[in-house]
């Protein structure tokens, strides 16, 4: 069983399509989406509808902070993100909004736990950026493999039997063995707004049979998305982010 882990699609249709065709070409068995379908990008309707169809076909999707902000005004977002969400809201139908509002905050299956930001306080949207912020997720959960998104930069942490948390060097494209003597926290990079310095869509493959996690990068038509962003009048900083992948 190989699961594609997608997160932070952020209404970037070109990146999302590129990842989905990579998933299909690799004949992965299932898709789990860690949230933030909308926000920042120019194609919220298409992306929400595509995820709705995937869910109908058996995929699983949880809620991100941008998805949550569509239906409520008390989510804290930075100014740029807020402008983008305010631009997004009127485009979405009631169906879309109901779907986003109904997404669960966490998903557990077997030894796997999926949340959007962190396991310790999912609704607080804490960023996992280092060993000490990863520690919290290991403390509250017994899951052997925890997968999160939200940070937009891929990273991997392990927690050994002595409870010590270590960041692990991640090489894109190489499978990392999730050895059973440790528990693991994978931070999956963003599909639609990568911030790891490479202007390519990120996702991850969790191979349950081989017990391996690999981070993947997929090239997509960045200029097309940037063109749509500008045409929609969204903040220029969002276009620059996509250009540089930062």
């Amino acid at each position: 069983m190989r699961i594609a882990i997608l997160t932070d699609i952020h209404a970037n249709r070109e990146a999302f399509e590129a990842v989905l065709s990579d998933v299909a070409a690799r004949k992965l068995d299932r898709i789990i989406c860690l949230g933030d379908i909308v926000g920042y990008g120019p194609d919220p309707v298409w992306c929400v509808e595509r995820v709705m169809r995937l869910v109908d076909e058996g995929a699983f999707c949880i809620k991100g902070n941008h998805d949550s902000a569509v239906g409520r005004s008390d989510e804290h977002l930075n100014v740029t993100a807020l402008r983008a969400i305010n631009w997004t809201r009127p485009l979405l139908s009631e169906d879309h909004k109901t779907f986003l509002a109904g997404l669960p905050m966490r998903h557990e299956e077997g030894e796997l736990l999926c949340v959007h930001a962190s396991a310790n306080d999912p609704a607080d949207w804490i960023y996992v950026t280092n060993e000490s912020s990863a520690m919290g997720s290991f403390r509250v959960s017994e899951a052997r493999v925890i997968l999160v998104g939200h940070r937009h930069v891929p990273a991997l942490y392990s927690c050994d039997m002595g409870g010590r948390v270590k960041g692990q060097r991640v090489v894109a494209g190489m499978a990392m063995p999730l050895i059973r003597s440790r528990r693991w926290l994978g931070v999956v990079g963003s599909v639609g707004q990568p911030r790891d310095g490479v202007a390519q869509a990120n996702y991850a493959i969790l191979d349950l049979a081989q017990n391996e996690l690999s981070f993947r990068r997929v090239p997509y038509d960045v200029q097309r998305t940037v063109g749509k962003l500008r045409a929609a009048g969204l903040p220029e900083s969002l276009a620059m982010r996509l250009n540089w992948g930062t």
Partner: peptide, 15 residues
Amino acid sequence: GYDAPTIVGFEVEQM
């Protein structure tokens, strides 16, 4: 208890 050298060596071999 926690016998780090043996465990880590074994983990490395498993990887």
